[in-house]
């Protein structure tokens, strides 16, 4: 791609209490990308986002976020980054309207019409006290707070888990608008693979602090196959093909280009949920 990266992580390593959480991880986000981050609990997804934002420092490796170091972000750049953490979030004692008013004051590009639009859509009443909101409503409010200024870079940590399917779909349409019209990039983690299948342009798959795959979703669907073999032993494979997992007669391959796989009884595409299951036996 010719455009400048909006987020670049290089060889990031991070340990907590002697336990490696991120292990040599590299990831780059360009404008227009909607990257679905998939991984088991504890794979390091949240830590990755926190390192990207400078909330925690990496032990080694290099991070550039909107061409600045996350540990020394300018106020101007901060106002173009959106983040929704897994556990929101303060503003106790505020009403929804008061919380938004305070939040709005930090962002010069805040779009008031968009805020109103989303309040209505998520069925949030400005007069309600923040601590009386349900988890799903809090999540909606957090999304409004992170997106109403059309950030260049949006990091969402499990943003939609508590939203109902209709709200999730609408929210996803907003993600597209943001990514495509404003040239922003979105990184969002979710366990709801059916959402990822719809929304993501790319999928990043993490396991044990490492990035196993980072690929365009359509490419992944074309090049990944689950093969049932006639025997337990690994047959000779075409040179383009690499093995992601092999257990008994089940083989997970990457780089498939329509070749004949020897000893295969079936050779089928798989969806993200199947892929996830196969990689976490």
């Amino acid at each position: 791609m010719e455009q400048d990266a909006l987020l670049e992580l290089r060889d990031i390593t991070k340990q907590f209490d002697g336990k490696t959480v991120l292990n040599g991880l590299s990831l780059t986000l360009y404008p227009g990308m909607v990257v679905g981050l998939l991984g088991a609990n504890g794979a390091g997804k949240s830590t990755l986002m926190r390192v990207a934002l400078g909330i925690v420092a990496a032990d080694s490796g290099n991070v550039r976020i909107l061409n600045e170091s996350p540990m020394a972000l300018s106020a101007k750049t901060k106002a173009t980054i959106g983040y929704v953490a897994q556990q929101p979030f303060g503003y106790e004692g505020f009403s929804v309207a008061q919380a938004l008013s305070l939040h709005r004051s930090f962002y010069p590009n805040w779009d008031q019409a968009l805020e109103q639009d989303w309040l209505q859509r998520f069925d949030l009443d400005g007069k309600t006290a923040v601590q009386k909101l349900s988890i799903g409503q809090r999540q909606s409010l957090a999304l409004i707070m992170a997106m109403a200024y059309r950030p260049k870079l949006l990091l969402l940590d499990e943003p939609v888990a508590s939203l109902d399917p209709v709200a999730r779909r609408r929210f996803m349409a907003d993600l597209f608008d943001l990514a495509l019209e404003s040239g922003s990039a979105v990184l969002f983690s979710s366990h709801i693979t059916s959402d990822l299948e719809r929304v993501a342009s790319h999928v990043a798959l993490m396991k044990n602090g490492e990035l196993m795959l980072m690929r365009e979703l359509d490419e992944l669907r074309e090049q990944l196959r689950i093969v049932t073999l006639g025997h337990d032993s690994l047959p000779e494979l075409p040179s383009s093909v690499s093995v992601l997992a092999h257990k008994g007669r089940t083989l997970l391959i990457d780089g498939y280009q329509g070749e004949v796989i020897a000893d295969a009884q079936s050779c089928l595409p798989l969806n993200l949920e199947q892929l996830f299951m196969e990689l976490h036996p």
């Binding site: 059916s194 719809r198 359509d218 595409p269 969806n271 949920e273 199947q274």
Partner: peptide, 11 residues
């Protein structure tokens, strides 16, 4: 069907 494993553009 986004979960069929077949690229959506091709569907």
């Amino acid at each position: 069907n986004p979960s069929s494993g077949e690229p959506i553009y091709r569907q």
